[in-house]
Amino acid sequence: MKEISPLQRAVEYIENHLNENIGLGDVSRETGYSYYHMTRLFSSVLGESVGRYINRRRLYNASEKLIHSDQRIIDIAFGCGFESPEAFSRAFKAVFGSSPVDYRRTGLDLVVNARRELTPEDVNHIANNISRSPEFVILKETKVAGLRGTTSLSDNRLPGLWEKFMRHHKDLIMAAGAGYGICETQRTTYTKDGDVLFSAMVGSPVQDFENLPPSLSLDQKILRAGRYAVFTHRGTFANLFKTYQYIFGTWLQSAKVELDDREDFEVYEREVLSFDDPNNEVKIYIPVK
């Protein structure tokens, strides 16, 4: 039997249980991944959360039933996994721009914004099929002092957080010789519209927290020791998401390693002059067992 990737297994599970009351927890248990890593997998490769993908697929099925069947709208709503006709109507209008009643009245199958089912071929195509091997390292526990904020799939707020840190605490990076960007594992939350909010921290490694001036009011973080797969991204940061697509969508599918439940993080050892500088370089540390 051909082995399938965790992402393909997740998509297959969703499609087989689409009309049931499933969520991120069910998908995580099916794949053996934590909430955090399943979220990272979907957001990096597909650009959306598990919940938003499930919602879009349910709406796609519902739109077809509105046009090609005579089922009552209330029955379509419940049959497609929505808790109430009102919740179905709100979600449907947000995606299609019209109510289920109006959509059925037009008689046109305008499935434009709701995605169809993803096939294994789709997943492989999205992942780009890039071939690159990471370096594996063992890191000691690392203390990081910096600023904490949030970012999301739809609104990348990290450049602003970095700008604030560099404006007030550039001396820390100069002393350490590196800046750290950390996506925090246990602080991921999900909005009502299906977006994902990631807690993030930017800062620099320090010898200890005790000698930091109290006036700096810096957040503190300890990165746990362990094994990491290290990838290097070069060039404009506009393409950074493509590197994450490769890591979670291609490399992870074929690598004989298992993700560990620690934070992944980025290390900037070169000064970043601009977002699109072709000489940019960042190392991405992925926790593995």
Rank of each mutant, 00 (worst) to 15 (best):
Q186M: 09
D208H: 05
F209V: 01
L218R: 06
F209T: 01
L212Q: 04
T188W: 03
L197P: 02
M201L: 15
G194C: 04
K192E: 08
D208W: 00
G194S: 11
T189M: 14
L212W: 09
L218V: 06
D208S: 13
K221C: 06
D208M: 06
T191G: 13
P214D: 12
L212M: 05
S215R: 13
N211P: 03
G194F: 13
K221V: 03
A200F: 07
Q220A: 00
D193P: 04
V196M: 12
R187S: 07
Q186S: 12
A200M: 12
D219P: 02
T185C: 07
D193V: 07
S217I: 05
L212N: 10
A200W: 03
D219M: 01
Q207H: 03
T189H: 04
D193K: 00
L216H: 06
G203N: 11
V196D: 10
D193Q: 09
M201V: 01
Q220C: 13
P214Q: 13
S204R: 06
G194V: 05
P214N: 14
K192D: 03
A200S: 11
S217E: 15
L197H: 13
S199M: 06
S217M: 14
Y190A: 02
V196S: 02
K192N: 04
F209R: 00
T188D: 09
P205W: 07
